[in-house]
Design a protein around this nucleic acid. Sequence first.
DNA 1: GTTTGTATTTATAACCGTTATAAATTTATA
DNA 2: TATAAATTTATAACGGTTATAAATACAAAC
Lengths: 144, 144
Amino acid sequence: MESIPERVFDKLAEKNIKPSFHRIKVLEYLMVNKNHPTVEQIYSSLKKLFPTLSKATIYNSLNLFVEKGLVQPITIEETEIRYDSTVESHGHFKCECCRKIYDFGIDIDSIPSSGLDNFIIYSKEIYYRGICRNCADVKSSQRS
Amino acid sequence: MESIPERVFDKLAEKNIKPSFHRIKVLEYLMVNKNHPTVEQIYSSLKKLFPTLSKATIYNSLNLFVEKGLVQPITIEETEIRYDSTVESHGHFKCECCRKIYDFGIDIDSIPSSGLDNFIIYSKEIYYRGICRNCADVKSSQRS
DNA sequence: GTTTGTATTTATAACCGTTATAAATTTATA
DNA sequence: TATAAATTTATAACGGTTATAAATACAAAC
């Protein structure tokens, strides 16, 4: 099993992205923090380690990663984009109560669809919204 | 078969939304124009008919409709929200070439998922991205 | 028909995530 | 070391959305 720093280098090399210091740190952050962080979250975390960091660098890096298919943007929020370094098939669930975004298992490619004959499909995203188990538990215990 | 004006009234009544003049016009617009319009598109169209219309009214009406489950917001675009008066199960495909958003048939509820035990699910959205048939045709004919 | 209170609409400022721009810095190449 | 190219920084600008307060429309009570 490769370590994360090793996998960061491999992923960047695989997509022909020059492994600059900041790009490495941004991708590493995404691979360690699987909680679908926003630009602001990535920026404020890395800023503590590297005080000269600019927010534009986060945007530059992420936009490059998305363009190259290394990272998936999650548009489940209306206000800001979240990012996920896992591009394999899975869904995202947003709890309307605690606002947390959960991954869940789903095999998107096994789902039959109609009306897309001769369409070329690059990516598929599945978003569910509702109340997560934790919040549902709290609510039901409050009720009793 | 009910006419659209009749269905507009029924839908509003069903959700206990007072049928003000502007709300009727906004919902009617969404039910006639099934092309997932943006706020700007709705506003500029209705503005021609009712010159005193304010854009805030469009936002107010749409936010109310979404809150009441009458209309579905589509967040497939990174920059702006689109709206769909069809809340029944279907997917949205965005062409990266012509930017058009297509509906397609898919039975979301038949798809097995894992990791959401005891989660309460309110809504499901499926977004595909790629190249639509029209744009794919143009590209392949250019190539030859 | 007034009067009074409430809901809706209008107009506009403010907010905030993102993009654009240009200067500064770093990195690569010769 | 000199030159060119790429990256990062700092900040202004952009644009979709929300917030605010005034104006208007609507409803109920008298």
